[in-house]
Amino acid sequence: MPENASALQLVLSGDPALYAIVRLSLVVSLSAALFATLIGVPFGALIALNRFPGREAVVVVLNALMGLPPVVVGLAVYLLLSRSGPLGELGILFTPQAMIVAQTILIAPIIAALARQTLEDLWNEYRDELAAMDVGPLGRIATLIWDARFSLVTALLAGFGRAAAEVGAVIIVGGNIDGFTRTMTTAIALETSKGDLPLAIGLGMVLLAIVILVNALAWGTRSIGQRVAG
């Protein structure tokens, strides 16, 4: 990266190292958001539609897990994936895959909790009608997920935003390896510690822009949803 360049110059000049970092961040956090959705939405649906002993406790724990500290997740995944850990055979510590695993664990509860709330609200509305139409259990879940799809996309975006902005988990399991596992947030942490504030600020601006974009997308999704589904 060019020395002494200002933050804005770095961003505008399309510095390749900077864009590689941005790209990796997006790939890792988007993948994590997709996997977390695949796990979180069915899980949330299961809780939303079923009554079982201890359900309240599960909901409380799930909501609490929305605030999982990233470093704790990072440490747990590190111990899991380390060569000396139970999944060491995989050999994926210090790789983007490990980062995706950590971020998936970090945000799956967020998506599951938001999906649970959304689907439960919709279920309360739909329950009688679907029962009168004699819709089976799988059909009910499919109907709820489909009709709540705009809200669920918003949940996915919330998870993505959280993943893209966290540093604690990815720095531990990714190792912040230059050109391989360095994301926007770990690079910001590194450059700040090196005292290279322009690059840190440049990356910070990109990250901020992405977060704003994600929120705009969420907002847009909601209004499209309202227009399409009423």
Binding site: L122, E125, Y126, D128, E129, A132, T143, D147, A148, A229, G230
Partner: peptide
């Protein structure tokens, strides 16, 4: 139902 619920479609 007395207050039928419209599916979001």
């Amino acid at each position: 139902f007395q207050r039928p619920v419209m599916l979001r479609r």
